[in-house]
Protein backbone atom coordinates (compact mmCIF):
# COMPACT_ATOMS: atom_id res chain seq x y z
CA UNK A 1 0.00 0.00 0.00
CA UNK A 2 1.31 3.38 -0.95
CA UNK A 3 1.87 5.78 1.89
CA UNK A 4 0.45 8.86 0.21
CA UNK A 5 -2.98 8.92 -1.39
CA UNK A 6 -2.33 11.68 -3.86
CA UNK A 7 0.86 13.55 -4.64
CA UNK A 8 0.36 16.79 -6.53
CA UNK A 9 3.42 18.14 -8.29
CA UNK A 10 3.38 21.80 -7.41
CA UNK A 11 4.64 24.65 -9.53
CA UNK A 12 5.77 28.00 -8.30
CA UNK A 13 5.04 31.33 -9.91
CA UNK A 14 7.01 34.19 -8.35
CA UNK A 15 7.56 32.16 -5.22
CA UNK A 16 3.88 31.35 -4.81
CA UNK A 17 1.95 28.22 -5.55
CA UNK A 18 0.63 28.57 -9.10
CA UNK A 19 -3.08 28.81 -9.77
CA UNK A 20 -3.01 25.59 -11.78
CA UNK A 21 -1.36 23.74 -8.90
CA UNK A 22 -4.22 24.87 -6.68
CA UNK A 23 -6.71 23.59 -9.23
CA UNK A 24 -4.91 20.24 -9.22
CA UNK A 25 -5.08 20.14 -5.44
CA UNK A 26 -8.84 20.60 -5.81
CA UNK A 27 -8.90 17.66 -8.23
CA UNK A 28 -6.81 15.50 -5.91
CA UNK A 29 -8.63 16.11 -2.65
CA UNK A 30 -11.69 13.93 -3.28
CA UNK A 31 -9.40 11.16 -4.52
CA UNK A 32 -7.27 11.26 -1.36
CA UNK A 33 -10.42 11.24 0.74
CA UNK A 34 -11.78 8.29 -1.21
CA UNK A 35 -8.51 6.44 -0.67
CA UNK A 36 -8.54 7.41 2.99
CA UNK A 37 -4.97 8.63 2.75
CA UNK A 38 -3.24 12.00 2.99
CA UNK A 39 -2.76 14.33 0.05
CA UNK A 40 0.75 15.62 -0.41
CA UNK A 41 2.31 18.26 -2.58
CA UNK A 42 5.81 18.17 -4.08
CA UNK A 43 7.47 21.57 -4.02
CA UNK A 44 10.74 22.34 -5.74
CA UNK A 45 12.51 25.64 -5.82
CA UNK A 46 14.96 27.96 -4.18
CA UNK A 47 12.51 28.75 -1.39
CA UNK A 48 9.25 26.87 -1.05
CA UNK A 49 8.12 27.73 2.48
CA UNK A 50 5.39 30.15 1.43
CA UNK A 51 4.06 27.81 -1.20
CA UNK A 52 3.83 24.98 1.34
CA UNK A 53 1.55 27.11 3.51
CA UNK A 54 -0.63 27.88 0.51
CA UNK A 55 -0.80 24.19 -0.40
CA UNK A 56 -1.90 23.30 3.14
CA UNK A 57 -4.59 25.96 2.96
CA UNK A 58 -5.71 24.37 -0.30
CA UNK A 59 -6.04 20.90 1.19
CA UNK A 60 -2.58 19.32 1.20
CA UNK A 61 -1.60 17.47 4.38
CA UNK A 62 2.08 17.03 3.66
CA UNK A 63 4.65 18.93 1.60
CA UNK A 64 7.65 17.04 0.25
CA UNK A 65 10.15 19.74 -0.50
CA UNK A 66 13.40 20.04 -2.38
CA UNK A 67 15.15 23.33 -1.96
CA UNK A 68 18.11 24.26 -4.08
CA UNK A 69 18.97 27.50 -5.87
CA UNK A 70 19.42 25.38 -9.01
CA UNK A 71 15.69 24.70 -8.97
CA UNK A 72 14.75 28.36 -9.23
CA UNK A 73 14.56 28.40 -13.04
CA UNK A 74 12.32 25.36 -13.57
CA UNK A 75 15.00 23.85 -15.79
CA UNK A 76 13.42 20.56 -16.87
CA UNK A 77 16.44 18.24 -16.42
CA UNK A 78 17.09 19.49 -12.88
CA UNK A 79 13.40 19.65 -12.02
CA UNK A 80 13.07 16.01 -13.14
CA UNK A 81 15.99 14.75 -11.09
CA UNK A 82 14.58 16.34 -7.96
CA UNK A 83 11.04 15.27 -8.75
CA UNK A 84 12.06 11.68 -9.30
CA UNK A 85 13.54 11.65 -5.78
CA UNK A 86 10.47 13.32 -4.25
CA UNK A 87 8.07 10.89 -5.90
CA UNK A 88 9.98 7.87 -4.70
CA UNK A 89 10.05 9.30 -1.19
CA UNK A 90 6.35 10.17 -1.14
CA UNK A 91 5.34 6.84 -2.71
CA UNK A 92 1.88 7.95 -3.87
CA UNK A 93 -1.03 5.89 -5.11
CA UNK A 94 -1.95 8.68 -7.50
CA UNK A 95 0.34 11.31 -8.99
CA UNK A 96 -1.13 14.48 -10.48
CA UNK A 97 0.30 17.48 -12.26
CA UNK A 98 -1.15 20.36 -14.22
CA UNK A 99 -0.70 20.21 -17.97
CA UNK A 100 1.05 23.54 -18.01
CA UNK A 101 4.10 24.59 -19.99
CA UNK A 102 6.26 22.83 -17.40
CA UNK A 103 3.88 19.91 -17.01
CA UNK A 104 3.89 19.25 -20.74
CA UNK A 105 7.61 18.74 -20.64
CA UNK A 106 8.16 17.19 -17.23
CA UNK A 107 5.25 14.75 -16.84
CA UNK A 108 5.92 12.52 -19.87
CA UNK A 109 9.60 12.34 -19.00
CA UNK A 110 8.86 11.56 -15.37
CA UNK A 111 6.45 8.82 -16.45
CA UNK A 112 9.19 7.26 -18.57
CA UNK A 113 11.66 7.55 -15.70
CA UNK A 114 9.26 5.91 -13.26
CA UNK A 115 8.23 3.36 -15.90
CA UNK A 116 4.54 4.15 -15.50
CA UNK A 117 1.67 5.08 -17.78
CA UNK A 118 0.46 8.66 -18.01
CA UNK A 119 -3.06 9.85 -18.75
CA UNK A 120 -2.53 13.21 -20.41
CA UNK A 121 -4.58 16.38 -20.37
CA UNK A 122 -7.51 15.12 -18.29
CA UNK A 123 -10.69 17.04 -17.66
CA UNK A 124 -11.78 14.76 -14.83
CA UNK A 125 -9.91 12.44 -12.49
CA UNK A 126 -11.64 10.31 -9.90
CA UNK A 127 -11.60 7.09 -7.95
CA UNK A 128 -14.81 5.11 -7.72
CA UNK A 129 -16.09 4.35 -4.20
CA UNK A 130 -14.55 1.19 -2.84
CA UNK A 131 -11.84 1.14 -5.48
CA UNK A 132 -8.28 2.42 -5.74
CA UNK A 133 -8.41 2.65 -9.51
CA UNK A 134 -7.96 6.07 -11.02
CA UNK A 135 -10.39 6.88 -13.81
CA UNK A 136 -9.37 9.74 -16.03
CA UNK A 137 -11.45 11.39 -18.73
CA UNK A 138 -9.40 12.92 -21.47
CA UNK A 139 -10.45 14.49 -24.75
CA UNK A 140 -8.89 12.82 -27.80
CA UNK A 141 -9.05 13.49 -31.53
CA UNK A 142 -8.91 17.21 -30.91
CA UNK A 143 -11.89 17.02 -28.57
CA UNK A 144 -14.11 15.11 -30.98
CA UNK A 145 -14.15 12.16 -28.60
CA UNK A 146 -13.62 11.51 -24.91
CA UNK A 147 -11.58 8.58 -23.62
CA UNK A 148 -11.82 7.15 -20.13
CA UNK A 149 -8.53 5.55 -19.20
CA UNK A 150 -7.08 3.81 -16.19
CA UNK A 151 -3.47 3.05 -15.32
CA UNK A 152 -2.08 -0.45 -15.00
CA UNK A 153 1.08 0.67 -13.18
CA UNK A 154 1.85 2.44 -9.95
CA UNK A 155 1.77 5.31 -9.20
CA UNK A 156 -1.26 6.06 -11.33
CA UNK A 157 -0.27 9.23 -13.10
CA UNK A 158 -2.37 11.90 -14.81
CA UNK A 159 -1.96 15.48 -15.94
CA UNK A 160 -4.95 17.76 -15.50
CA UNK A 161 -5.87 20.43 -18.04
CA UNK A 162 -5.58 23.93 -16.59
CA UNK A 163 -8.95 25.45 -15.65
CA UNK A 164 -10.68 22.07 -15.66
CA UNK A 165 -11.13 22.47 -11.90
CA UNK A 166 -11.91 25.50 -9.77
CA UNK A 167 -9.17 26.26 -7.25
CA UNK A 168 -10.19 25.43 -3.66
CA UNK A 169 -11.35 28.17 -1.34
CA UNK A 170 -8.24 28.41 0.86
CA UNK A 171 -8.57 27.66 4.56
CA UNK A 172 -5.67 29.53 6.21
CA UNK A 173 -6.21 27.67 9.47
CA UNK A 174 -5.21 24.34 7.88
CA UNK A 175 -1.67 23.23 8.59
CA UNK A 176 0.49 20.37 7.41
CA UNK A 177 3.80 18.69 7.76
CA UNK A 178 6.86 19.71 5.75
CA UNK A 179 9.15 16.82 4.81
CA UNK A 180 12.36 18.07 3.25
CA UNK A 181 14.02 15.62 0.87
CA UNK A 182 17.73 15.76 0.12
CA UNK A 183 18.41 15.93 -3.58
CA UNK A 184 21.93 15.95 -4.94
CA UNK A 185 21.89 18.35 -7.85
CA UNK A 186 24.70 19.93 -9.74
CA UNK A 187 24.55 22.34 -12.62
CA UNK A 188 25.99 19.81 -15.06
CA UNK A 189 22.78 17.78 -14.85
CA UNK A 190 21.05 20.48 -16.86
CA UNK A 191 21.55 19.41 -20.45
CA UNK A 192 19.57 22.15 -22.11
CA UNK A 193 20.21 25.81 -21.49
CA UNK A 194 18.03 28.83 -22.19
CA UNK A 195 20.07 31.42 -24.05
CA UNK A 196 17.45 34.14 -24.40
CA UNK A 197 13.73 34.83 -24.09
CA UNK A 198 11.63 36.83 -26.52
CA UNK A 199 8.28 38.18 -25.33
CA UNK A 200 5.47 38.37 -27.84
CA UNK A 201 2.30 38.59 -25.78
CA UNK A 202 -0.33 41.10 -26.71
CA UNK A 203 -0.08 44.23 -24.63
CA UNK A 204 -2.68 44.86 -22.02
CA UNK A 205 -4.72 42.20 -20.36
CA UNK A 206 -3.38 38.67 -20.15
CA UNK A 207 -5.47 36.31 -22.22
CA UNK A 208 -5.72 33.62 -19.53
CA UNK A 209 -6.85 36.05 -16.86
CA UNK A 210 -9.21 38.22 -18.90
CA UNK A 211 -12.88 38.30 -17.93
CA UNK A 212 -13.77 39.08 -21.53
CA UNK A 213 -11.85 37.81 -24.55
CA UNK A 214 -12.31 38.69 -28.21
CA UNK A 215 -10.68 36.60 -30.91
CA UNK A 216 -10.48 36.50 -34.67
CA UNK A 217 -10.03 33.75 -37.23
CA UNK A 218 -9.14 33.07 -40.82
CA UNK A 219 -12.34 34.69 -42.02
CA UNK A 220 -10.91 38.09 -41.11
CA UNK A 221 -8.75 37.74 -44.19
CA UNK A 222 -5.59 39.48 -43.01
CA UNK A 223 -3.73 41.16 -40.17
CA UNK A 224 -5.40 44.60 -40.44
CA UNK A 225 -8.82 43.51 -39.19
CA UNK A 226 -7.18 42.57 -35.91
CA UNK A 227 -6.88 46.31 -35.34
CA UNK A 228 -10.68 46.48 -35.39
CA UNK A 229 -10.72 43.67 -32.87
CA UNK A 230 -8.20 45.48 -30.70
CA UNK A 231 -10.47 48.47 -30.82
CA UNK A 232 -13.33 46.37 -29.48
CA UNK A 233 -11.04 44.77 -26.90
CA UNK A 234 -10.04 48.19 -25.63
CA UNK A 235 -13.62 49.32 -25.28
CA UNK A 236 -14.48 46.18 -23.33
CA UNK A 237 -11.26 45.93 -21.36
CA UNK A 238 -10.88 42.53 -22.97
CA UNK A 239 -7.95 40.27 -23.83
CA UNK A 240 -7.33 39.45 -27.45
CA UNK A 241 -6.72 36.08 -29.07
CA UNK A 242 -6.90 34.20 -32.33
CA UNK A 243 -7.48 30.85 -33.96
CA UNK A 244 -4.56 28.80 -35.15
CA UNK A 245 -5.42 29.57 -38.77
CA UNK A 246 -4.86 33.27 -38.05
CA UNK A 247 -1.57 32.47 -36.32
CA UNK A 248 -0.43 30.14 -39.10
CA UNK A 249 -1.22 32.85 -41.63
CA UNK A 250 1.31 35.03 -39.83
CA UNK A 251 -1.25 37.69 -38.91
CA UNK A 252 -0.70 37.52 -35.15
CA UNK A 253 1.93 35.95 -32.85
CA UNK A 254 1.61 32.36 -31.64
CA UNK A 255 1.11 33.55 -28.06
CA UNK A 256 -2.35 34.74 -29.13
CA UNK A 257 -3.54 31.26 -30.08
CA UNK A 258 -6.48 29.81 -28.19
CA UNK A 259 -7.14 26.09 -28.32
CA UNK A 260 -5.83 22.60 -27.84
CA UNK A 261 -2.27 23.59 -28.67
CA UNK A 262 -2.67 27.20 -27.62
CA UNK A 263 -4.03 28.81 -24.50
CA UNK A 264 -6.95 27.66 -22.39
CA UNK A 265 -9.29 30.47 -21.43
CA UNK A 266 -12.33 30.55 -19.17
CA UNK A 267 -13.69 34.08 -19.46
CA UNK A 268 -17.24 35.10 -18.61
CA UNK A 269 -17.65 36.28 -22.18
CA UNK A 270 -15.83 35.08 -25.29
CA UNK A 271 -16.55 36.88 -28.56
CA UNK A 272 -15.37 35.06 -31.69
CA UNK A 273 -15.23 36.76 -35.04
CA UNK A 274 -14.89 34.71 -38.24
CA UNK A 275 -13.80 31.58 -36.40
CA UNK A 276 -15.39 28.32 -37.55
CA UNK A 277 -15.23 26.60 -34.17
CA UNK A 278 -13.17 23.50 -34.97
CA UNK A 279 -13.02 21.08 -32.04
CA UNK A 280 -9.35 21.93 -31.49
CA UNK A 281 -10.26 25.57 -31.05
CA UNK A 282 -13.19 24.79 -28.76
CA UNK A 283 -10.81 22.71 -26.62
CA UNK A 284 -9.29 25.97 -25.41
CA UNK A 285 -12.48 27.93 -24.79
CA UNK A 286 -15.20 25.47 -23.83
CA UNK A 287 -14.90 26.71 -20.26
CA UNK A 288 -16.07 30.18 -21.28
CA UNK A 289 -19.38 30.98 -19.58
CA UNK A 290 -20.88 32.61 -22.67
CA UNK A 291 -19.60 32.31 -26.23
CA UNK A 292 -20.70 34.81 -28.86
CA UNK A 293 -20.11 34.12 -32.55
CA UNK A 294 -20.07 36.37 -35.55
CA UNK A 295 -19.75 34.27 -38.68
CA UNK A 296 -21.20 34.45 -42.17
CA UNK A 297 -21.88 30.72 -42.32
CA UNK A 298 -24.99 29.72 -40.37
CA UNK A 299 -23.80 26.10 -40.45
CA UNK A 300 -20.44 26.85 -38.82
CA UNK A 301 -19.73 24.66 -35.82
CA UNK A 302 -19.14 27.69 -33.61
CA UNK A 303 -22.92 28.22 -33.51
CA UNK A 304 -23.23 24.83 -31.81
CA UNK A 305 -21.08 26.19 -29.00
CA UNK A 306 -22.31 29.74 -28.90
CA UNK A 307 -25.01 31.20 -26.67
CA UNK A 308 -25.53 34.22 -28.94
CA UNK A 309 -24.76 34.43 -32.62
CA UNK A 310 -25.01 36.73 -35.57
CA UNK A 311 -24.89 35.30 -39.07
CA UNK A 312 -23.31 37.88 -41.30
CA UNK A 313 -20.24 39.51 -42.73
CA UNK A 314 -17.95 40.36 -39.84
CA UNK A 315 -17.00 43.75 -41.20
CA UNK A 316 -20.58 45.00 -41.23
CA UNK A 317 -21.56 43.37 -37.97
CA UNK A 318 -18.45 44.26 -36.02
CA UNK A 319 -18.32 47.99 -36.75
CA UNK A 320 -21.92 48.49 -35.65
CA UNK A 321 -21.42 46.17 -32.70
CA UNK A 322 -18.31 47.99 -31.49
CA UNK A 323 -19.96 51.41 -31.84
CA UNK A 324 -22.99 50.31 -29.84
CA UNK A 325 -20.82 48.67 -27.20
CA UNK A 326 -18.83 51.91 -26.93
CA UNK A 327 -22.01 53.88 -26.28
CA UNK A 328 -23.33 51.30 -23.83
CA UNK A 329 -20.24 51.06 -21.69
CA UNK A 330 -20.12 54.86 -21.47
CA UNK A 331 -23.65 55.07 -20.17
Amino acid sequence: MAQTGVLVIGELADGQLSLTSKEVLAAGKPIAEQLGQPMAVALLGADVGGAAGEAFACGADVAYTATDPLLAENQADLFLSALDALCREADPEVLLMGRTAIGREVAPRLAARLGVGLAQDCLEVSVAPGSTELRANRPVYGGNAMATVSCTSSPQFATVRPKAYEPPVPDPSRTGEIKPVQVALDASMAKSRVVSVVREEAEGIKLEDARIVVAGGRGLGGPEPFEDLEDLAKVLGAGIGASRAAVDSGWVPASWQIGLTGKTITPDLYITVAISGASQHIAGCSGAKVIVAINKDAEANIFKEARYGVVGDWKKVLTAFTETVRELVKS
Binding site: A119, A145, R307, Y308, G309
Partner: peptide, 16 residues
Protein backbone atom coordinates in the same frame (compact mmCIF):
# COMPACT_ATOMS: atom_id res chain seq x y z
CA UNK B 1 0.49 0.92 -19.15
CA UNK B 2 -2.91 2.47 -19.77
CA UNK B 3 -6.27 0.80 -20.19
CA UNK B 4 -8.87 2.28 -22.47
CA UNK B 5 -12.02 1.85 -20.39
CA UNK B 6 -14.46 3.82 -22.51
CA UNK B 7 -14.53 5.92 -25.66
CA UNK B 8 -17.47 8.15 -26.50
CA UNK B 9 -18.57 11.37 -28.10
CA UNK B 10 -19.20 13.96 -25.41
CA UNK B 11 -22.65 15.39 -25.67
CA UNK B 12 -23.13 19.11 -25.85
CA UNK B 13 -26.54 20.57 -25.47
CA UNK B 14 -26.34 24.26 -26.23
CA UNK B 15 -28.94 26.49 -27.80
CA UNK B 16 -27.72 29.41 -29.83
Amino acid sequence: LLNLVDLFVPSTVKEC
